[in-house]
Amino acid sequence: MGSIQLKSVRKAFGGVSVINGVDLDIKNGEFAVFVGPSGCGKSTLLRLIAGLEDVTSGEVLIDGKAVTDVGPAQRGLAMVFQSYALYPHMSVRNNIAFALKMAGEKTDVIERKVAKAAATLNLTDYLDRKPRQLSGGQRQRVAIGRAIVREPKAFLFDEPLSNLDASLRVQMRVEIGELHNDLKTTMIYVTHDQVEAMTMADKIVVLDKGSVAQVGTPLELYNRPNGLFVAGFIGSPKMNFIKGPSSERRGAAILGIRPEHVAVSTTAGEWPATVRLAEHLGSDTFVHAEGDGIGPLTLRLEGEAPLKPDQRIFVTPREANIHKFDTNGRRID
């Protein structure tokens, strides 16, 4: 079991409020991702759950029980740190075994569990090495191995992939996803990368300046962002925001349209624009254009679009995919 609830959790560091009253409900077995720009309080929120920081007010509940007075060692959660935080003076074997030793497990049980975790993570050949003798990806695996041997109630990941290069990051992302499928243990994963959030999460929690902006499945957030912040944060390339006559006509202060939800014509359309740059990726073409009177537009066209800088185009948003926001930046339905 590993359900986690937060009730009006606040955290201030010396008078500066960092988490401003967060309510959250993470179900057993769920893969929840905290996402938001750097400095919005993701790590702090995770550390409050872990018990590495004390809440200023509010409650953290694990399996329905308040753990405010329970230390990190007793909460039964495992954490994977951005820096891996391996014990540099211990072999891989002892790194993985440490938690079991602390729990007073018998030697043969420890051996069996370490061997199993090492096999799962392809670390069997490296058990006697020290962390400094491993590559970044292997260190990451040891950090994960250290977490899984404990059979925790939930895993907490704090930007675990941000120190890896791009291709390894994609590979590890898949491995962590598979791990979740196998173990079916609750996971809370912190990242500033919305692509990681979209690809891995059952539930995304978007944080903005210490408050929850929106909670939902990846597609809910993509299709129905509740405000400008989430609309701009989720999706890549970013959603275009348009003010002026075309939004007023549709009864909104600001109109949002994703780059992939437009039609482009060279002859006629709603927004005349000038192409600034076309990025040809083969599968898609990203077009950066300057709309007359509406500012920069990013467009994503399928396949190869034969567009060149300075060319005149006409952009028409697909009506069904238009998002409308009021003057406060909230969604209008």
Binding site: L52, M79, A85, Y87, F98, M102, A103, R146
Partner: peptide, 23 residues
């Protein structure tokens, strides 16, 4: 010494004494 490593020990269930002694 990176404090992360000590926090990792705490997460691994080490008591304060064990954290100081073994890590």
């Amino acid at each position: 010494i990176p404090v992360d490593i000590l926090e990792a020990a705490r997460m691994d269930g080490a008591s304060l004494l064990n954290e100081i002694l073994y890590v």
